[in-house]
């Protein structure tokens, strides 16, 4: 059986004496992150919405933080949701959303931190059985209509994977221009320490005659609401 030193020795042999000094150092750093003005953010939000729609996502637009709970509760009621699963927010207080859903008569599963091995399977099943999963993204990419979600103890990534309908909120401050900026914003540290998923639209396939069908394994629908926290 091979081990690290065997493989490294093989690779070293294969590379032979080819001079490493010649290897061009690639300057592949993303565009520098500029502070964005309110206008820039509005523009990015528009672009994000456009791109999200082009990947069959449902763009709910921008709302103030205090309106988010009502908007989501209304969406859940309209689409016949009976159970919803929700995690802790990043910048947004998701407690208000849970309360608003309950007011609509929807039963809410709050993913609590500290799931132990014994109830993990049951919890996963309960998340999977929810009609709607609600989560806040850590970052959103305007050029591709993408949401980046970092999975933590109180915000498991199953929330955006298992329920058939996925609602993702994102704070307007967390909109960035492109993939490089998103990766730079999340940073090497965050990515080295967490499971991160970039989500671009509902789950889809083109495996049957290259025809696009939504909702293969992940959510069939994806609704995104941008939250504007300040009066700007």
């Amino acid at each position: 059986m091979a081990d690290l030193s065997d493989i490294v020795a093989r690779v070293k042999d294969a590379l032979g004496s080819s001079a490493r000094g010649d290897l061009a150092e690639i300057d592949a750093n993303g565009a520098p992150l500029h502070a964005l003005s309110a206008n820039d953010r509005a523009e990015l939000a528009t672009q994000f919405g456009h791109e999200l729609k082009s990947v069959a996502g449902d763009y709910l637009g921008i709302c103030r933080a205090d309106e988010a709970a009502a908007r989501i509760a209304a969406l859940a009621a309209e689409t016949g949701v009976r159970t919803a699963a929700i995690g802790e927010g990043v910048a947004i207080d998701t407690g208000a959303i849970a309360t608003a859903l309950e007011t609509e008569g929807i039963s809410v599963l709050r993913t609590a931190p500290g799931v132990d091995a014994d109830n993990r399977t049951q919890t996963l099943r309960r998340v999977a059985d929810a009609d709607m999963g609600i989560a806040e993204a850590d970052c959103a990419i305007a050029s591709t209509g993408t949401l980046a979600v970092v999975s933590t103890v109180s915000r498991p990534s199953s929330l955006t994977l298992l329920p058939p309908s996925s609602v993702i909120l994102v704070n307007v401050d967390r909109l960035v221009r492109d993939i490089a900026a998103a990766v730079a914003t999340l940073g090497a540290n965050e990515i080295a320490n967490h499971r991160v998923t970039l989500i671009t639209g509902p789950s889809r396939t083109a495996d049957i005659e290259k025809r696009i069908v939504l909702g293969v394994h992940g959510p069939k629908s994806l609704h995104v609401l941008i939250v504007w926290p300040r009066d700007e």
């Binding site: 990947v55 500290g114 799931v115 091995a117 991160v196 998923t197 639209g201 509902p202």
Partner: peptide, 26 residues
């Protein structure tokens, strides 16, 4: 590959789940 700007899911995996995590393998 598919004529998309980005695939639907780009998964960054780093290791087994931490204590108390719901997601990820042991």
């Amino acid at each position: 590959a598919t004529g998309q700007k980005l695939t639907t899911y780009t998964n960054f995996l780093r290791g087994p789940r931490a204590d108390g995590d719901l997601d990820g393998p042991r």
